[in-house]
Design a protein around this nucleic acid. Sequence first.
DNA 1: CGGAATCCTCTTCGATACTG
DNA 2: CAGTATCGAAGAGGATTCCG
Lengths: 227, 227
Amino acid sequence: MAGEPRRYRELCPIALALDVIGDRWTLLLIRELFAGPKRFTDLEQGLPGVGSSVLATRLRHLEQHGLVRRRRLPRPAPALIYELTPRGASLDAVVLSIARWGAAYLPGQQDLVSRGRWLLQALAATADPPPPGLGSTNFVLDGEESHIRVGHRRLAARDGLLTDARATVRGTVPDLYTLATTSGTGEPGLGRVAVDGDRRAAEWLLKHLVAGLRSAANSGTSTKEHA
Amino acid sequence: MAGEPRRYRELCPIALALDVIGDRWTLLLIRELFAGPKRFTDLEQGLPGVGSSVLATRLRHLEQHGLVRRRRLPRPAPALIYELTPRGASLDAVVLSIARWGAAYLPGQQDLVSRGRWLLQALAATADPPPPGLGSTNFVLDGEESHIRVGHRRLAARDGLLTDARATVRGTVPDLYTLATTSGTGEPGLGRVAVDGDRRAAEWLLKHLVAGLRSAANSGTSTKEHA
DNA sequence: CGGAATCCTCTTCGATACTG
DNA sequence: CAGTATCGAAGAGGATTCCG
C-alpha cells in the first residue's frame, strides 16, 4: 500500500510537474528509457542502488501518468519491456537542460559509478547542432555497446550498435572521460581510444563532442563548491 | 546533525545535477528566488507546507553549492535576504523547461493553493518571444503585487510593482486562471480583470500570454492521466 | 529467469514547539 | 525575524522471498 503519494498541491506548473517527475530516481529512470526500451532488470542495472520496490513503484506511477508504457514483446523475445510514451518523450527538453547544467560538475570527479552510455548521453546533450556530414558512430566502452546517432539538429545516445555507423570507437570509460574532460593544450587527438572504420569521421565526431562538453562545463561559472 | 546528504554517486551530469537540485522543495525554492530576493519568512510563505527545518537545510545546501547567497541588507532594512548567485540564475533554462512541460497540467485543476505570481511565472515561461512594442505590466492579484517585465527575448515575472509599467491589471487569481485556461470561442477579452493605465497594452500582453500558455498546454499530447 | 511483493532498518519529511 | 529542537509518520535502501 503506497498510500497517496506526496504532492505539493500548488497551482504552479513547476510544482505540478514535480508531482509527476520530482521523486527520487524518477528522472534517472527516464534517462535510462531515453536510451531505448528496457526490461525491469535492465533498469535495475542502470540505476545502481535503486531497490526493486522503489523501481516498481516509480514505473507504476509513470505508467498511471501516461509517461511510460508497458509492452509485451512478441516472439521470439517473450519479455516485458518499458518504454516512453510521446508524453514521456516530450521530457527531452527537461532532461537536456538538466544535463547541460549538470555538465559543469563532470570534470574532476572520482569514485563514482560510471557507464559508457551515460558519458555518451552527456556528450550528446552538450554538443552543438551537428554540422553537415558528421556521421553516426558506434561505441564499445568497457564492453558495453552503444552509439551516437547524428540527427537533424541534435545528437542522441542510445544503447546497442547501428548497422550503418561510419565508425566504431573502442576503449574504457576512463579513457573517454579523460579525453573529454582533460583540457590538453591544443588537440589531444584520440587519446587511448581505438577506432574501427572511418578514423577521420570518428575523430571529427569526438572533437565536436569534446568541444561541446567543455563549453557547457565552463559556462557553469566554474563554482567549485562544497566546502 | 544532517549526516551526509544522499547522493546518487553516478558519473552522469543528470545525477550530479540532481544531487544539488533534486531534493524535495529545492526547485520550488529556486522558483521563489527567481521572483526576487527573499527573507526566510517570505520563503516559508511561498512554500506552503515546507517546514522551517527543511527550508533551513535546503538553503544551507544551496549556499554550500554556490547557487544561493545570503546577504544582510543595509539600513534602512535590517533584514537577512537570500538571493540567487549567477550559478543559481543559470538554472533558468531548467526551470523554464520544467514549467513548459508542466503547463499541460494547469487546466482543470481544483483545490490547489494558488498565488498570483505563480500564475504569472507560468504565463511568462510559456510565452513566445515578445513582439516589438509589447510593454511591461503590473499585476495586483488577490492583493498581491507583482509584474511581468518584457525583456529582449523573453518575459519574466517578479514580485513588486514597476514604476515604468504601461498598465496595471487587477483581479483575483481565479479570474486570471479562468481567463488563461478557458478556451472560450474566439477572444474572451479581459474576462473579469480590470485595467488601470493603457488598456490596449494590457489586452495585447494578456492575449500574448494566454496564447502561449494554451499552445504549451496543448503540445502536452493532452494525456489526462491518473486513473 | 524476469518481475515484482514483503520485511526490516534507516533516513527524511512535516508539523509543532521553542530560542537567540 | 530567523532559525534550532524534537518527534511521529512516511519514504528509501537492502535483502530475501515469492510467483509465473
